[in-house]
Design a protein around this nucleic acid. Structure first.
Lengths: 144, 144
DNA sequence: TACAATTTTATAATGATTATAAATAAAAAT
DNA sequence: ATTTTTATTTATAATCATTATAAAATTGTA
């Protein structure tokens, strides 16, 4: 799935009707590949979409995830993060600044959605935790 | 690290002073390899340790995780799960019944704690989501 | 225009987790 | 053994992400 597509078409390709709010949200996800929280998205958009409500952000992301247009990342125990890049890659979260980065996976075999035992697997997630360059240098306090 | 060890020695080997409550909790984790939540642990133990408080379960698990005696699993967005098996393995969570199982990893390379770019990696987690045999047969509703 | 369906919104409710500070227990010192 | 100090446990309240609910606004359609 190409991400540098116009937001409207992107939504439609996943069977999602493109409303003003939905377009603003995908657009934000396309341009800000920081694995944002609901809060991040809301804070960034309520200026340009003044009527926006946080409930709408929750509802919209739930819809996007259900339709497969966005991936929900459960890595941080504090907040769910969202990733519009649904292609095969891993993540790294810094225990100190809590930012999340994409990590390419060399051998993607382990992440291939496949049959294991009697389990029907629909998603695979690989993530690392540790300290980013900045926080490791500064020796800033942990919280993982 | 051997898990079939007596709880007291296990705690001591991680530099944790073995109190009554702490022993009850590791013992529970050793005998019930179901990746329990705080709630699960509390519900199972407050009968045999009547003074037990949920705050203690939170505090204790936090200590165990900090000392490396137990692994915190962030897979389910609802609750953190705990695993006393800190050896290299993956997990599977059923989107319907929310149970979590251990999955062996064939090639553990991806999960090896190592240096990537400028990142200092301290933990790796691989997990799958989908439907277990029981829920897939019964076609029970999702919630992932 | 009027009707129906969808989407958005504000508000309240839920529920996991953390903060706080008092109570208890254990260890050390006298 | 008794006091003093430290560590641990506990009850309670606070926080904060997420969900539920129902009303309001918007869109599509006859």
């Amino acid at each position: 799935m190409i991400i540098n597509k116009n937001p409207r078409e992107y939504l439609q390709s996943y069977g999602i009707k493109p409303s003003l709010q939905r377009i603003a949200i995908v657009e934000y996800l396309m341009k800000n590949r920081i694995h944002p929280t609901i809060e991040d998205i809301y804070n960034a958009l309520y200026i340009q979409v003044p009527t926006l409500s946080k409930t709408t952000v929750y509802n919209t992301l739930k819809l996007f995830v259900e339709q497969g247009a966005v991936l929900a990342l459960v890595i941080d125990d504090k907040n769910v993060r969202f990733d519009i890049d649904t292609s095969c890659h891993a993540h790294f979260q810094c225990c100190s600044c809590h930012r999340i980065w994409d990590i390419p996976v060399g051998n993607a075999d382990l992440l291939q959605v496949r049959q294991i035992d009697d389990l029907l697997i629909t998603e695979s997630h690989l993530y690392y935790k540790g300290y980013c360059k900045h926080c490791n240098n500064k020796m800033v306090g942990s919280s993982c």
